[in-house]
Every structure is written in C-alpha cells, then in structure tokens.
C-alpha cells in the first residue's frame, strides 16, 4: 500500500470513530441517545475544552510536573538498575543470595506501594517519582543483568587477547553490551516511568495530568476526563518520538537499524 493511501485509511478510521461518537452523543435515535452526553461527552466539547485548556496557563504547569516526575523516575530507576544489574551480573554469589527477594519484589503489583510512598514522601512529586522508579528499576535491572551475562565469550576472549585489562573490558565490552540491552527496553521503561507518575498523581496529589483527570472525574466532568486523556495520549506520543530518535542515534551498530546503508 502506498504511503498516501495508508494515511487516507488511517484518517478514515479517526473520522468514522469521531462520527459514531458525535452521532451517538448528539442525535436522538428512536427517542434515545446511544451515548448519553453525561457519560460520554461529545467530540466537539472535548475539542473546545482542549483549546480552552491550552489557552490558559494551568495546563503547562500540569504537563511540566508530569514530565519532571517521568524524567526523574526514569533517571533514578535506570541509574539504579544499571548499577545493581552490573553488580549482580559480575558477582554471582550476590545474585544467588538476593535472587528470591528480587523475584518477590518484582512480582508485587506496584500500585499497592503508592499509599506507602505517599505516607513516606508526602503528596508532592517525590512519591510519584518513587512509584515510577519501582517500575523502571526492574526493567532496566533485568536487561542490564542479561546484557552483561550474555556477552559472547569469544568477543571477551578476543578483547583479552587484544590486551584489555579489567577496566578496559568494562568500558569497551561489558558497558556497550549492557547499554544495548537497556536501550532495547527504553520504550518500555520510559512508558512505565510515565505510568508511575500518572497513577501516583491520580491517587493523591495537587498537580499533574493524573491530578487533572482525577479532579474532573470527581465533579462528573466527563468532558474534562476525556480532554485529559487526549492530552495524555499526545504527550506519550511526543515522549515516544523523542526516545526513538535517541535510540536510533545510539544503536546505529545494530542490525535492525541497518536498512539505509547496507552493502
């Protein structure tokens, strides 16, 4: 299918979706509305609400809070995951001792930690960051661990024959191997950082996109809830696009990215 045709079909899906929503919520059929306004709002109301939100100053504050929480959660979680992942992979004894506890902690649904983080860290951004960190940490940890463990023994032997000492092996072999695994899970881990932030905000806070949605829900403002959801979805797309760019830049050596300059 050509690019233009694909785009046409993609737009068509959106148009049909909005049309059904619009008709269901504002045209009376056999004396009833299939999608009552109270529960479903209408596409035009949601659209104008978004316009109104973006003409005020408040939305930028919410966005920047959520973005800050996401970035902090990602950085702290990824940093911890890299450090501990390396440590565990290079010290099998440590790994063996902690293994059941790591599995236990990872099995726990992270949402149940939210109340405890609120108690410990208050209603500000840090309780949301903590929630995001618990999600990001494990993804990065498992990937870095795997990356260090699965360095090809031949590449390693070759590097040693080329005269590398432990420090150089770390820098030229282990580190790039671990990073490549970490970056392969970058989309997931950034996504989880955002989930942590929004869920945290939703459960108790005074700012952020999650808070905005929660606040609208509290007064049965469906238009506000849908507007918040649309903004959140757009926000995720932007973050994802940025991650893709970073990834393409850092992983040029990977076969998947080869297409363009293949022999």
């Amino acid at each position: 299918m050509s690019q233009a045709r694909l785009l046409t079909y993609q737009i068509l899906v959106a148009v049909v979706f909005l049309l059904i929503w619009h008709i269901g919520s504002s045209v009376e059929i056999f004396g009833v509305y299939f999608l009552p306004k109270f529960f479903f709002s209408t596409p035009s109301d949601v659209f104008f609400r978004i316009i109104k939100l973006f003409s005020g100053p408040l939305i930028w504050k919410h966005l920047s809070i959520t973005l800050t929480e996401t970035i902090l959660a990602f950085l702290i979680g990824a940093g911890g995951g890299i450090l501990i992942g390396f440590w565990f992979a290079r010290r099998p004894m440590v790994n063996a001792i902690f293994d059941p506890y790591v599995k236990m902690a990872n099995a726990l649904p992270r949402v149940v930690l939210a109340p405890i983080f609120m108690l410990w860290l208050g209603l500000g951004i840090w309780s949301k960051v903590a929630l995001g960190v618990t999600l990001v940490f494990f993804i990065v940890f498992f990937n870095v661990y795997q990356g260090v463990k699965e360095v090809s023994p031949v590449v390693l032997a070759n590097a040693r024959m080329l005269g590398m000492d432990e420090k150089q092996l770390f820098r030229h072999v282990y580190w790039p191997a671990a990073l490549s695994w970490m970056f392969s899970s970058l989309h997931t881990s950034v996504g989880f950082a955002l989930v942590g932030a929004v869920v945290g905000e939703y459960l108790g806070s005074a700012a952020g996109l999650g808070y905005m949605i929660h606040e609208a829900e509290g007064v049965f403002d469906t238009t506000g809830v849908f507007a918040g959801m649309v903004i959140l979805a757009a926000f995720v797309l932007v973050v994802d696009a940025v991650v893709t760019r970073i990834e393409n830049k850092l992983l040029v050596w990977r076969p998947e990215q080869a297409g363009r300059n293949e022999a």
Binding site: S152, V154, V155, A157, N158, A159, M161, H172, V173, P176, A177, S180, W253, R254
Partner: peptide
C-alpha cells in the same frame, strides 16, 4: 589470536 567465530565488537 584469530578466532573461528565472529570476535569483533559489534558496537564498534
């Protein structure tokens, strides 16, 4: 040492 298998660092 020249190995039978691929021993180049794929990220370089």
């Amino acid at each position: 040492y020249l190995f039978q298998q691929d021993a180049l660092m794929p990220w370089k």
